[in-house]
Design a protein around this nucleic acid. Structure first.
Lengths: 246, 246
DNA sequence: CGCTACGTTGAGTGGCATCAAGCGCGGTGG
DNA sequence: CCACCGCGCTTGATGCCACTCAACGTAGCG
């Protein structure tokens, strides 16, 4: 199976073999492993390279002075940690590993080559950014307007859909390395209330959740419960060539 | 006084006279006026050009099927409605005018000229985007972690700071064309509770609010109340040349 | 086998929503 | 000119959703 990020970019533009080779070269120069619950980069760090998540889950988060913590976005396999970070000197928030994370680093020169000499890759990367922004806005809606149950249902729908895009689902199941505390910091709820809401989702058969594995027996039902409309993920754009692989 | 957007871009990069002339040309080709409470663009609309807000306030918002509405971001004078929208066919959310809005349209060709032939403008536009993303994340924190009073205090600090950047403050005052309903749809609170929270902010002297005018007698106090840390607005980057104008 | 992290459960509380009514003001038309 | 209306602001009463505090269960692990 192709790596997640290739699979993902390929859905946003039809890449040539040449494009893919260049991508492979640029992303296989340097990498590292970050243990679960460690920081990938910390707020204030000097920006060296762009990190691409090859495996594992990470998140962007911000702390308030009194210790409250908000996870502002999830970074799943194939996702890039902020392209536009190159115009910045220092990180303006921290990125933490949720599970063990495998990183690939993209150097400034490598990125510039991609952007200038590979227009289809450039297009795909623009899409990546656009979708990331759109997700960020949807989270605003989630936190501002939805009830606890809707928030969690919506989150699960989003996660499942994003993982499916990069081939990390298995039937109606996928991994879910988030603790209930994590879920609370994503949805703006207390861990206790997350627990009770999960029980409700379970008892109504909307989700099955055990040993870090999420199963969604009927996606439509969960989507209804979470008012999930996948439009903001812009899957409608997904490349024509997918017809061949699906 | 220079137009807001020029003033803003100039804080993100030092523009030459040539840069400014080109910007002026590109943005003065076409424009339109949108009345208060009308939509600037509607979800599903075909994307024609990039809109730049020359005057007035607008907002991006999303509706839920049952009528709930969330304002996901404020667009103030000098702000651009999504650069990366050119890779999209149709708008994925609506933009509404809060007060009467004066728009300038940037054509695809005009934008491409700017991005390729004017590196400093390109840099400034990247910054614009980066800051917009950062603001979006901060709103996630606001909705997820802060109390009603903190949310509104934080919002006021952000608005005042952003307006100050483009020269639209007057001492410790600025315009605030938002209704309490708008404030509720921004902060995820009911209009009734916004009202009561505003009274609390007023009675403690943190803000003065009357006839669409916001006054912040002591910015530090309000910032403390809202846990406002301006780092996410990246003002520290603001150009060296500002020394001359301030 | 104790430690730690995570999950679960119960009781009590409170922040914010909802419902409802009234007020003030500017706009509009008879 | 004034009655009328609509919109936004204000206030009170009531209730619920979600928080806090606290205790206990459970599983992985050194």
């Amino acid at each position: 199976m192709p790596p997640a990020f290739l699979r993902k970019l390929n859905t946003f533009a039809v890449l040539s073999q040449d494009d893919e080779q260049m991508l492979d070269m640029v992303t296989s120069q340097r990498g590292r492993i970050v243990a679960a619950r460690e920081d990938v980069v910390r707020i204030g760090d000097r920006v060296q390279a762009i990190n691409l998540i090859a495996s594992g889950w990470a998140c962007r988060y911000r702390m308030l002075p009194d210790g409250r913590r908000q996870i502002v976005s999830l970074i799943l396999p194939g996702d890039i940690c902020d392209l536009n970070i190159f115009v910045i000197q220092r990180m303006d928030l921290s990125i933490g590993a949720i599970s063990e994370v495998g990183l690939r680093e993209i150097s400034r020169e490598g990125l510039e080559t991609l952007l200038t000499a590979h227009p289809r890759v450039r297009q795909a990367l623009w899409w990546e950014q656009l979708v990331a922004n759109s997700i960020q806005r949807e989270w605003t809606v989630n936190l501002g307007q939805r009830t606890a149950l809707e928030r969690i249902a919506h989150l699960f729908c989003e996660i499942f859909t994003r993982l499916k895009l990069v081939g990390l689902t298995d039937g109606d199941s996928c991994e879910l390395p988030l603790t209930q505390i994590d879920l609370g910091e994503i949805t703006g709820l207390s861990a206790v209330h997350v627990n009770r809401t999960l029980q409700e989702l379970r008892s109504t058969g909307l989700v099955v959740l055990r040993s870090r594995m999420l199963t969604i027996p009927n996606f439509g039902n969960l989507a209804d419960a979470g008012l999930f409309d996948p439009g903001y993920l812009h899957l409608d754009h997904v490349g024509r060539h997918l017809d061949a692989t699906e």
